[in-house]
């Protein structure tokens, strides 16, 4: 089985690398197989076995799906509510009855919007604003002061940029939003650099797999 897995991995790896030449049937084959397998994996192993089974089935039918002490617990019947809401979602498969899924969508939207308003303010908005409020004049610490200026100017300039209701023109608004764009470019660049590093390490891993596990050359 291990040998079969290594050979399959090597063939799929080579099929994927063939895209460097050009778009070709081998790459398309690997790409479609990957999408099919990952959709199947998320469907069965993640959605069913990791979410639905422990959170719904094991609680609704503990004797059949529960393990350990859980199997002896009483069924939590209130979980029928999300089950019904989930099943209503499947009505989208029919064109005439698709409107039935609106109750589920409305429930999910209500929950997420209600939570968003309070949680995102509490967990993201306030901490981010706090992060941008730093002392601008530090006695004797010129580099730290300069860095804090950079941070504050950057935060304000980027926020100016994100205000799309008005055209980014004029000596003040235009200039500040342009500075915001520069900051955004630096930030995207940093993210891009980190991504490329990650991809290169993945690439090294693939070559290691081909040369070490498959061909046993190193």
């Amino acid at each position: 089985m291990l040998t079969l897995s290594i050979w399959m991995g090597a063939i799929i790896t080579l099929c994927c690398f063939s895209f460097l030449f050009k778009d070709n049937p081998f790459y398309r084959f690997a790409e479609h197989l990957f999408v099919g397998v990952s959709a199947g994996y998320y469907f069965s192993a993640i959605s069913f076995h990791q979410v639905l089974k422990p959170n719904l089935l094991a609680k609704l039918f503990p004797a059949s799906f529960g393990s350990g002490q859980e199997a002896l617990a009483a069924p939590e019947l209130w979980l029928i509510v999300p089950t019904i809401l989930g099943i209503l979602m499947l009505f989208r498969l029919s064109q005439e009855l698709a409107w039935v899924s609106r109750f589920t969508v409305a429930f999910v939207m209500g929950v997420t919007t209600g939570l968003t308003i309070v949680l995102s303010t509490h967990q993201f908005l306030i901490p981010q604003i706090k992060k941008a409020i730093v002392p601008l004049f530090l006695k004797g610490q010129y580099i730290a002061s300069f860095s804090n200026w950079v941070l504050v100017i950057g935060s304000i300039a980027c926020l100016f940029y994100f205000f799309f209701s008005t055209e980014h023109r004029g000596p003040i608004y235009g200039t500040v939003s342009r500075v915001g764009i520069w900051y955004l470019m630096i930030s995207f660049g940093a993210a891009f650099g980190a991504t490329v590093m990650g991809r290169i390490s993945l690439l090294i891993g693939r070559f290691q797999f081909l040369l070490q596990d498959w061909l046993k050359l190193i």
């Binding site: 790409e31 479609h32 955004l184 995207f188 891009f192």
Partner: peptide, 17 residues
């Protein structure tokens, strides 16, 4: 345009995903 071009060009092999 610059980040969009970079992201799109790099994401081309992954478009079907």
């Amino acid at each position: 345009s610059v980040p969009a071009v970079i992201a799109l060009e790099m994401a081309k092999p992954l478009s079907f995903l």
